[in-house]
Lab assay of single mutants.
Amino acid sequence: MTDQQAEARSYLSEEMIAEFKAAFDMFDADGGGDISVKELGTVMRMLGQTPTKEELDAIIEEVDEDGSGTIDFEEFLVMMVRQ
């Protein structure tokens, strides 16, 4: 866990972390443990947004600390705390 990830967790109660985990699992449609650009786009479109591929890439790049091209749960928490 990076310093950013530990800091993000410090702002959240266990209840909030559990709620974010449920949301993360909804995004992680294939159950792979991370959110891909495609999965992020699908959920955002379900919520009425129309992000471009470039916008989706930028969202993932902003929090993808390990350079995997996807968002894992710890990175997702950082993203949610920043919102």
Rank of each mutant, 00 (worst) to 15 (best):
M1T: 11
M1W: 09
T2E: 11
T2N: 15
D3H: 06
D3A: 10
D3M: 12
D3N: 15
D3I: 13
Q5M: 13
A6G: 13
A6K: 15
A6R: 11
A6S: 11
A6C: 06
A6N: 09
A6H: 09
A6E: 09
E7M: 07
A8E: 09
A8D: 09
A8M: 08
A8T: 13
R9G: 06
R9D: 15
R9C: 05
R9Y: 05
R9V: 06
R9M: 06
R9W: 05
S10W: 03
S10D: 14
S10Q: 03
Y11P: 12
Y11A: 12
Y11E: 07
L12F: 14
L12C: 03
L12A: 03
S13V: 01
S13A: 10
S13Y: 01
E14Y: 06
E14R: 07
E14F: 11
E14T: 09
E14Q: 07
E14M: 07
E15P: 04
M16G: 05
M16N: 03
M16Q: 12
M16K: 12
M16D: 07
I17P: 00
I17V: 08
A18Q: 06
A18V: 07
A18Y: 15
E19K: 15
E19N: 07
E19M: 03
F20Q: 01
F20L: 05
F20K: 00
F20Y: 15
A22D: 09
A22K: 15
A22Q: 08
A23I: 04
A23S: 08
A23C: 05
F24H: 00
F24S: 00
F24W: 15
D25E: 08
D25C: 05
M26W: 04
M26N: 14
M26L: 11
M26E: 09
M26Y: 15
F27H: 05
D28V: 10
A29D: 14
A29H: 07
A29W: 05
A29F: 00
A29T: 12
A29C: 13
A29Y: 15
D30L: 04
D30T: 11
D30S: 06
D30F: 05
D30W: 02
G31P: 02
G31W: 02
G31N: 14
G32T: 14
G32D: 08
G32S: 12
G33K: 02
G33L: 02
D34V: 12
D34Y: 03
D34N: 03
D34L: 14
D34W: 13
D34G: 11
I35G: 00
I35R: 01
S36C: 13
S36R: 07
S36F: 06
S36K: 08
V37F: 04
V37K: 03
K38V: 06
K38D: 12
K38F: 00
K38S: 15
K38E: 13
K38N: 02
E39F: 09
E39M: 08
E39L: 08
E39K: 05
L40A: 13
G41D: 06
G41P: 04
G41S: 11
G41M: 12
G41L: 06
T42C: 15
T42Q: 13
T42P: 14
V43W: 00
V43R: 00
M44Y: 06
R45S: 08
R45G: 14
R45M: 05
R45C: 07
M46K: 12
M46W: 06
M46T: 09
L47S: 05
L47T: 04
L47P: 00
L47K: 00
G48E: 05
G48Y: 01
G48L: 01
G48H: 14
G48R: 06
Q49W: 06
Q49S: 14
T50A: 01
T50F: 11
P51I: 14
P51M: 07
T52H: 05
K53I: 10
K53V: 08
E54V: 09
E54T: 10
E54F: 14
E55Y: 04
E55W: 05
E55Q: 15
E55F: 04
E55H: 07
L56N: 02
L56S: 02
L56T: 10
L56M: 02
D57Y: 02
D57P: 04
A58V: 13
A58I: 05
I60S: 06
I60Y: 12
I60M: 15
I60K: 04
E61C: 15
E61V: 05
E61D: 15
E61R: 09
E61W: 06
E62K: 14
E62P: 06
V63C: 08
D64Y: 14
D64K: 08
D64C: 11
E65C: 11
E65N: 15
D66I: 13
D66Q: 14
D66K: 15
D66W: 14
D66M: 05
D66F: 11
G67T: 08
G67A: 12
G67L: 11
G67D: 06
S68Y: 07
S68V: 12
G69N: 09
G69R: 05
G69S: 10
G69T: 14
T70C: 13
T70G: 04
T70L: 14
T70N: 08
I71P: 00
I71K: 00
I71A: 02
D72G: 15
D72W: 03
D72A: 10
F73M: 02
F73R: 03
F73N: 00
F73A: 01
F73V: 01
E74H: 01
E74P: 02
E75V: 05
F76S: 00
F76I: 01
L77A: 07
L77K: 07
L77E: 05
L77H: 01
V78S: 14
V78K: 15
M79I: 05
M79G: 09
M79H: 09
M79A: 14
M80C: 08
M80N: 03
M80P: 00
M80Q: 10
V81A: 04
R82K: 14
R82M: 09
R82A: 06
R82D: 13
Q83K: 15
Q83L: 07
Q83Y: 05
Q83W: 15
